[in-house]
């Protein structure tokens, strides 16, 4: 564990807590894309399939449970909570998740670190699922970014949520750079490229978020 990865995990945790805070306290999910939240639930479910079979550390297991629990409870709130669901604007949240999930699944089958299409063993299945979750996480924010472009007024909590979500992966990139220079054989092109793509998708959001912070004006994304 290094400071970049710890900061990345804490930033990721904070983004989830900001969203849960918004939904749980003001009972509103205005401006939040349910499609993105559902994609994140799929990301965590496919990434942490081995949560009970491969134990790493108490921290690792606790964080996995928090991410799984929070992502599924956010989806539950937005779908079924009688007050929260009323503030979900489904007409603005029109991105079709399958056009993201299918290419990621195909890509995970074609391009993964195990290349050799060995016997279809459980470990290969887990690895394909893990790679799928990596690709899916890179694009999962797209429905949310599309929705932000449409909903003119972005409230502070939503802006902070998206910012923290983008910042966590940027910190992970620093973590990978650090591990590359401090550990031997630490080369993971697939993870690095998908992490980079993920962070670059936030580039314009970061720009407008910084501008709104610098000029102390409301965050507005150009149409």
């Amino acid at each position: 564990m290094n400071i970049f990865r710890l900061a990345g995990d804490m930033t990721h945790l904070l983004s989830v807590l900001v969203l849960l805070l918004k939904i749980h306290t003001i009972k509103s999910c205005a401006g939040i894309s349910l499609k993105t939240q559902e994609l994140y639930a799929v990301v965590f479910a496919t990434r942490y399939l081995d949560i009970f079979t491969s134990y790493i550390s108490p921290y690792n297991t606790m964080m996995k449970l928090i991410f799984l629990g929070s992502s599924f409870s956010i989806v539950w709130y937005m779908r079924y909570h009688k007050i929260v669901r009323r503030s979900y604007d489904k007409d603005q949240d029109t991105f079709r998740p399958y056009i993201l999930m299918l290419p990621c699944l195909i890509l995970a089958l074609l391009i993964n670190e195990k290349f050799t299409f060995k016997e279809i063993s459980t470990s290969f299945f887990l690895f394909v699922m893990w790679t799928f979750s990596l690709y899916l996480e890179a694009v999962a924010i797209l429905p949310q970014l599309v929705m932000l472009q449409r909903t003119r007024n972005i409230d502070n909590l939503t802006g902070q949520y998206v910012f923290l979500l983008g910042a966590y992966r940027a910190l992970y990139i620093l973590n990978w750079i650090y591990r590359y220079f401090t550990e031997e054989h630490f080369v993971h092109w697939i993870t690095w490229i998908s992490g980079l793509v993920q962070t670059l998708l936030y580039a314009d959001f970061f720009y407008y978020y910084f501008q709104s912070w610098k000029n102390n004006v409301k965050l507005q994304l150009p149409a």
């Binding site: 564990m1 990865r5 995990d9 990721h12 550390s57 973590n175 550990e183 630490f186 993971h188």
Partner: peptide
């Protein structure tokens, strides 16, 4: 974490 692999990452 064992050297070089990503298993310990979230």
């Amino acid at each position: 974490s064992s050297n070089g692999d990503l298993k310990d990452e979230l």
